[in-house]
Simulated assay, not measured.
Amino acid sequence: MNNKFKKLIVSIFLDAIGFIPFLPFDLFWAPVSGYIMTKMYKGKEGKIAGFVSFVEEILPFDFIPTFTIMWIYSYMIKKRKNENIIEAE
C-alpha cells in the first residue's frame, strides 16, 4: 500500500474522530484537527484546509469530512489540473 492510500485511510479515521458529537471533545479536537491538517497537507492549501477544519470542528454540528475532501482535492482534482496544464504547454 503506497503513501497516498495510507493518507486516505488516516483521513477517513480522522474524520470519524471528528464526528463524535460531544461538545467538550470538540473544543479539544478543533485545534488538534487544524494542526494535523496543516502537517498532512503542506503549503497554502494545507493552511487553508487547517483553518477550515478548525472552524468546522468547533461548530456544534460537524458533519463535513474535511480530511477526506482534502485528500480528494490533493490526489484527484489537483493532479488532473496539473496534468491539463502540462498538456497545454
Results as ranks from 00 to 15, higher is better:
66 T>L: 06
36 I>C: 05
82 N>M: 15
27 L>S: 04
62 D>N: 14
67 F>N: 04
74 S>I: 06
9 I>F: 14
19 F>W: 14
86 I>K: 14
9 I>W: 09
64 I>C: 07
11 S>P: 04
11 S>A: 15
52 V>W: 06
85 I>S: 08
38 T>C: 12
31 P>D: 04
5 F>L: 14
11 S>R: 03
25 F>D: 08
4 K>G: 08
59 L>Q: 08
60 P>Q: 12
27 L>Q: 00
8 L>T: 14
11 S>W: 00
30 A>E: 02
42 K>L: 11
61 F>Q: 11
80 R>Y: 12
16 A>H: 09
63 F>S: 13
86 I>L: 14
87 E>A: 15
29 W>H: 06
1 M>E: 13
69 I>S: 05
63 F>R: 09
84 N>D: 13
39 K>C: 02
87 E>L: 15
8 L>G: 08
19 F>M: 13
38 T>R: 09
68 T>C: 07
27 L>V: 03
45 E>P: 03
32 V>Q: 06
59 L>R: 01
4 K>C: 12
68 T>D: 02
45 E>R: 08
2 N>F: 01
23 L>H: 09
8 L>P: 03
78 K>C: 11
62 D>A: 15
16 A>Y: 12
73 Y>K: 12
58 I>D: 02
46 G>E: 04
22 F>E: 10
39 K>F: 01
16 A>E: 05
7 K>R: 14
55 V>T: 12
48 I>C: 02
34 G>R: 01
35 Y>F: 14
43 G>E: 02
14 L>S: 00
30 A>W: 01
49 A>T: 05
57 E>R: 04
16 A>L: 15
2 N>C: 05
71 W>P: 01
78 K>I: 06
